[in-house]
């Protein structure tokens, strides 16, 4: 066997195993309804794995992520809405499980702080520009007018 045919066979084996594993995932979560499939994929991206912090459940291989995924699949198949499924998970794993934080007195600052910064900046700029105007005395203005007139 020469090197080239070895490569072809190797490539074939890799291609086969990759396509095989992809199809097995498809088989595991099958939907008759396309909108349900879309909802399942959406939730897989939005729900956060409680064990692994910065991974969503679709991305994570933790046991708990697999369990949540299986439950989401079951609930989606049952015809539950997105909000119902998210609150089902929040009831068990807290707000942490959803990547979109709810507005509470504590999280309100996430939205308020940038606005306060912008407001603060605007006020600062306004005061700065006002102060500059005051610094120009009447005398200086007259002088400027004279120069302009002479030209």
């Amino acid at each position: 066997m020469n090197f080239r045919s070895f490569l072809i066979i190797l490539f074939g084996i890799i291609l086969y195993s990759v396509s095989h594993s992809a199809s097995s995932v498809e088989e595991k979560f099958s939907f008759e309804d396309e909108s349900k499939r879309a909802l399942f994929i959406e939730l897989g991206n939005e729900l956060r794995c409680p064990k692994c912090q910065n991974q969503n459940i679709a991305d994570s291989n933790a046991v708990v992520a697999k369990d949540i995924t299986a439950k989401v699949y079951e609930l989606v198949k049952d015809g539950k809405s997105k909000d119902e499924i998210i609150s089902y998970m929040k009831l068990r794993y807290g707000d942490f499980v959803h990547y979109e934080p709810p507005i509470t007195p504590l999280t309100l600052w996430l939205w308020l702080l940038p606005l306060i910064f912008i407001l603060f900046g605007c006020v600062f700029m306004f005061l700065l520009s006002k102060k500059k105007q005051v610094d120009i005395s009447q005398e200086q203005l007259q002088k400027a007018d004279e120069w302009l007139d002479t030209k």
Binding site: A62, V63, V64, R92
Partner: peptide, 13 residues
């Protein structure tokens, strides 16, 4: 079985 009750308890592992 199937860690179903663990899910109800919010068990992470």
């Amino acid at each position: 079985e199937g860690r179903r009750y663990s899910l109800d308890l919010g068990v992470t592992g």
